[in-house]
Computed example of a mutant assay.
Amino acid sequence: MPYITVNQKRLNYADSHPGGAPAGGLTFVFIHGLGSSQNYFFAILPHLTATHRCVTIDTYGSGRSRFTGLDQNIGSIANDAVKLMDALKISSAVVVGHSMGGTTALHLASQYSERVVAVVAIGPVHPTASTGQIFEKRIQVVSEDGMEPMADKIPGTATGSHSTPLQKAFIRELILGQDPAGYISLCRVVSTATAPDYAAIKVPLLVIAGDEDKSAPLDGCKHIISRVSSSTKVLEVLSGVGHWHCIEAGDEVGKLIASFTRAHT
């Protein structure tokens, strides 16, 4: 997997078609959530890569994109994605984000509308005051005890009733693989985040929610859908699924994204 340097950050990414999207296909850019990496999306990529270019990124401070102490926020993560698109000569893309990455994808669509063909927000977090309090507590735990308390807790509490032991093991490994300093930096991103300018979003929007998601509850997803200006906006709710949608229900998510973009782009 190659690296690219943008905004003084060395980011790891994967590109299914480095030479450009296949004829008639689209380019997708994927932004993962807190405690995760680009590998979160790999279960859904087989539904897309036969006909589309898929670029997955390790957000700064996550996965293989090493944290070097730079401050960041939702806006800077969105700008990192745009600069990576510039470097890879991607003029526009379908932007797919999960959780914090979903919030980032919505921000990107509101601020860089000319670069976005459509948005897929998977379990997007709508920032509230209570969200900030939750992640401030998480910062304290990780500062004192590292990633293990998160790895022991999150796979059980943030997944749905259909989640398997293997899926929970993968989530645990994703979390254990995080650099605590990078994770804390991204917790601060979430705790200080403000809502994107939803009204500025006019491109087609697909929101995918889990009916058992406690981290990005359905009410928040409905709030987002109700406030975007897109003439095409779809909410899909997955039964028995928690917050790790692409791991818990990869085939369902992949099919929904493929179907939505085929119909609306």
Rank of each mutant, 00 (worst) to 15 (best):
D152H: 08
L218I: 13
L26A: 14
G156V: 00
A209L: 01
S230E: 10
S191P: 05
P46E: 13
H245E: 01
G254T: 04
G102R: 02
V82P: 08
P22F: 10
F28R: 03
G156N: 13
G156I: 01
P124N: 04
G24S: 04
S36C: 13
P127G: 06
N7G: 03
S143H: 12
S239I: 05
E114R: 11
A195T: 07
L45A: 09
S99H: 02
T194C: 03
A151N: 11
Y40F: 15
V119N: 03
P180W: 04
L186Y: 07
R53N: 06
E252A: 15
A87R: 14
I74P: 00
S76L: 15
V228R: 06
V234D: 12
T51F: 05
S215T: 14
S91I: 07
A181T: 10
E144M: 10
M1R: 11
A118T: 05
L176P: 07
I175E: 12
G35R: 09
H52Y: 03
S161N: 01
T56W: 08
T68K: 06
A193E: 03
G254D: 03
R262L: 03
Q167E: 12
K89M: 13
A93T: 08
F42W: 15
T232G: 01
V96R: 04
I44W: 11
A199Y: 03
S226T: 04
S259C: 02
L174N: 13
T265W: 02
V55A: 09
Q133M: 12
C221R: 00
H98N: 14
R64M: 12
L108E: 05
I134W: 02
I201A: 09
T261R: 05
H264Y: 14
V96L: 06
I171R: 07
E252G: 00
H98I: 04
K9H: 09
V119C: 04
S65M: 10
A93V: 05
R53V: 07
T49W: 12
S65D: 05
P18S: 08
F41H: 07
S99M: 04
V241N: 02
R138E: 11
I247Q: 11
A50Q: 09
S113H: 15
A249D: 03
L88W: 07
G33R: 01
I225A: 05
T265F: 08
G254Y: 05
I134Y: 10
L84C: 05
S143L: 08
L26R: 15
H98Y: 07
D15M: 14
H264L: 02
S113F: 09
G210S: 00
S130A: 15
V203G: 11
F30Y: 15
R115L: 07
M147R: 09
G182V: 14
V94P: 07
F28Q: 02
G35N: 08
V189I: 02
A105F: 01
A193D: 06
F41K: 04
P127M: 06
Y40C: 09
F42V: 10
M147V: 13
H126I: 00
T194H: 08
Q111R: 14
T261G: 02
S226F: 00
D211G: 00
P149R: 02
V29Y: 08
S231P: 13
A14W: 13
T157E: 06
R115N: 15
H162V: 04
A158I: 00
K9W: 04
L106P: 09
Q38M: 15
